[in-house]
Design a protein around this nucleic acid. Structure first.
Lengths: 129, 129
DNA sequence: GTGCACCTTCCCCTAAACTGGAAGGTCAAG
DNA sequence: CTTGACCTTCCAGTTTAGGGGAAGGTGCAC
C-alpha cells in the first residue's frame, strides 16, 4: 500500500505517517523502486495502536516506549519485564489520576445541575467551578 | 493590589497574569499613575475560577468562553454545565482507552514473565533500552 | 544617593504533535 | 502530450500555556 492509502485506513494523513517515521514510532518504511514508501496491513495495526494510545492521552514518547517493548516480542528478558512493569504502574497511576479528576468534574457537574440557574450570581461568576 | 501580590494570592506568577490579560481572560487592568497594573479582590476570584477550570482539565479557551458569557451579564451556568458534561464524557472515553491499554500491557507482561529469564541475551535484546 | 525589590514592555524560547507549502519526481488516463 | 493525482524531501509555521531575560522606570529604606 502507498502512504496515502495506509494513512486513510488508519484515519490519519500521509504527513502524520512520515512524522511518525521520523519520530521512530514507525520503522523506516520499505520503498518501491520509485522511492515511494510501501506499507502492509501490519502498519495499519500499528497506527491504530498509536491512535488508541493517543486517545487515551498518552504522549507519543510513552506510546513509543510500549511499542519498542512490543517490538522485541515475548522476550523473556528481565529488562523488558522491568520496563513493562514500570509502564503498567505508570498506566495505573495515570488511570487513578484521571479517575480522581473525573470524580471532581462529576461533582462540579452535579452541583451545577442541582443549582437553579436563576440563582447563579453573575458577580461571583458561577460557584460550580 | 500590585500584580505580584495578586498573582501570589492566586498561586500564579505575574507573568501568567499578563499572559491572561493578553489572552483576553482578564480585562485590561486598571493602572496606577505610575503605570503599574492595579487589581482588586475580584481579580483574585476570577483567577481562582480560572485555576479551578484548569485543574478540571479545561483549556483556557473553554474557560474564556465561560467568562465571556458571564461578562456580558448573563448567567454562564448552563454553559458551564455543557462544558463540564463534555469534559466528563471526554474523561470517561480517555479512562476507557487507558484501561484497555493497561490490559494489553498486563498481558504482555504475563507473557514476558512466563518466559525463562536465563536465556536472555542483554546485549542483543535489551540494547534499545 | 544608592541599593533593592518591585514594576513596565518587548521579543524570543519551550515541547508536543502535527500541518502547510514549495519544488520536484512518477504514473495512469484521455 | 499533457493533466491530475499521487509521491518525495525539506523548511517553516501553528497551537497551548506559559517562562526567560533584557532594558529601563519607580519607590522605599538606609
Amino acid at each position: 500500500m502507498q502512504i496515502g492509502e495506509t494513512a486513510a485506513a488508519a484515519g490519519m494523513t500521509a504527513k502524520t505517517l512520515r512524522f511518525y517515521e521520523d519520530s521512530g514510532l514507525l520503522p523506516p518504511a520499505d520503498r518501491t523502486p520509485n522511492g515511494y514508501r510501501s506499507y502492509t496491513r501490519k502498519t495499519v495495526d500499528r497506527l491504530e495502536f498509536i491512535r488508541r494510545g493517543r486517545a487515551a492521552g498518552l504522549t507519543l514518547a510513552q506510546i513509543g516506549d510500549i511499542l519498542s517493548v512490543r517490538d522485541v516480542g515475548q522476550s523473556p528478558c528481565v529488562h523488558v519485564q522491568d520496563v513493562l512493569a514500570m509502564r503498567l504502574s505508570n498506566l495505573d497511576a495515570q488511570i487513578a489520576e484521571l479517575a480522581a479528576l473525573r470524580d471532581t468534574v462529576a461533582e462540579m457537574l452535579g452541583t451545577a445541575v442541582a443549582g437553579d440557574p436563576a440563582i447563579c450570581d453573575p458577580a461571583r461568576i458561577c460557584s460550580y467551578l
